[in-house]
Write a protein that binds this DNA or RNA. Structure first.
Lengths: 238, 238
DNA sequence: CGGTCAGTTGATAATCATCAAACGGAGTGG
DNA sequence: CCACTCCGTTTGATGATTATCAACTGACCG
């Protein structure tokens, strides 16, 4: 219950915007778990029989290949909801990047509750839709941005996420390695490093430590990284 | 009603798996429309006040920038469902690639119907979840595949989609230009062309016309393009 | 029969990956 | 307390892939 209270304080969470009764039922079927940094939360290829809500810590979701290639699909922050798929087996893996606390919801139980609780079903649909929006944003980043633009937009994103969790402050944490960032942005860790160095040398950011960044010129950083959609182009392309 | 019958014949459609009454209500609020090739179906930046089901023809969804960059997010086939977003305005545009027929559903009406029709809500959630799965697949393609691998996986995907629509046959249609394929795969049209030429010269495919491909060696094509997920790696990376 | 346009092919350039070395902070042991 | 090691990061040199620019081909259409 107190685990929930902590979680509910956050916006955009699955359980927010639910009435007391539904929340209680959800809680009744939730397994509260804690895992040490480095542990699998979702094994790639395992039966997709649960979904998760991250309560504390950081976790990463990635698609992996036998050749050792890795594409990180999402960096999870407290309050994030993950492992929703239509497939019978997970196409990706998720692991604890730091020590984490999470709620595990068995899929068949959740599907059961959902059929009698339209509000919950709706809430899940909204969450999945938001994830769709953000993955489409990532598609654009990977398909059509340069290394510098990718890194700039990533810093913007990091800052945005941390502000949303209510950490103002001049500094933004970078709670993942250069290699992780690279595997999210479709680059190498060297390219990420070079892009950061360039942004620093041009006065857009400061890097007091490897895991902290100060954004000195947000408008310019944003103009590099965050590409605006065309308002209303004349004629469709193609 | 006959427009619906045509649409319902297809698997994986929004309206499939709904009972008669719900389907009738959905139909009652659906605007059946037809649009000529080249027309906007969704204008980028417009109020996100409707969702669509494509009944016939092909449409493309893309994120566009004022600098003329374009990232195609999806190629829509008959039966596909699109323009679902959490945002108030569309971050992307969609247009008719050929003459199209579609159903338009006003978002506020649909939201209304959905609250009293759990089965429909569930159906929508499933559709959105499937889209999430496929966009995540695209993220991996853009982030971690070479040009040749991207094109190979694209051909596999085209073939897969057309088989699902029930067109066996030795030949697979390519119902979009090289530039469209390029903007989907994060490449240029020249790179797409070179990759196709290479696949042809290596005997994997035949190209009797620019808009048709014959897959001569599916296993090899698949092994190039479709990267298997790691079954169960020992220790999480990172 | 010429014109237009999508597609292909070729030459060159830019970006990013790869390979390699140096750097620096955190932790360890003398 | 300080040297040493380790590992992630940064920086440098080189190479590969893909983008860009440009020319050419062929199909379709007036």
């Amino acid at each position: 219950m107190s685990a929930c209270a902590q979680c509910l304080a956050r916006q955009g969470t699955l359980c927010g915007a639910l009435d007391e009764e539904t929340r209680a039922r959800l809680l009744a079927m939730a397994h509260a778990e804690e895992h040490a940094a480095g542990r699998w939360l979702v094994q790639p290829g395992a039966a997709a029989d649960a979904v998760f809500i991250l309560r504390a810590g950081h976790a990463h979701v990635a698609r992996l290949t036998h050749e050792g290639k890795r594409q990180i699909l999402a960096f999870l922050f407290p309050g994030d909801f993950f492992a929703f798929t239509y497939e019978q087996r997970y196409a990706y893996g998720a692991w604890a990047a730091t020590d984490v606390a999470l709620c595990r919801l068995a899929r068949h139980q959740l599907e059961g509750l959902v059929t009698t609780t339209p509000a919950l079903e709706r809430r899940i649909r909204v969450q999945v839709t938001r994830q769709l929006d953000s993955v489409q944003e990532l598609v654009f980043t990977l398909g059509r941005k340069t290394a510098l633009e990718r890194v700039a937009s990533f810093l913007w994103y990091l800052d945005y996420r941390q502000r949303k969790l209510g950490r103002p402050g001049a500094m933004t944490d970078i709670p993942m390695s250069r290699a992780d960032i690279a595997d999210f942005l479709g680059l190498t860790s060297e390219s990420v490093s070079r892009a950061l160095t360039r942004l620093r040398s041009e006065g857009l950011i400061s890097l007091p430590a490897a895991d902290q960044v100060g954004i000195l010129d947000m408008p310019r950083l944003r103009s590099i990284g965050v590409v605006e959609a065309e308002p209303v182009p004349e004629q469709p392309p193609g």
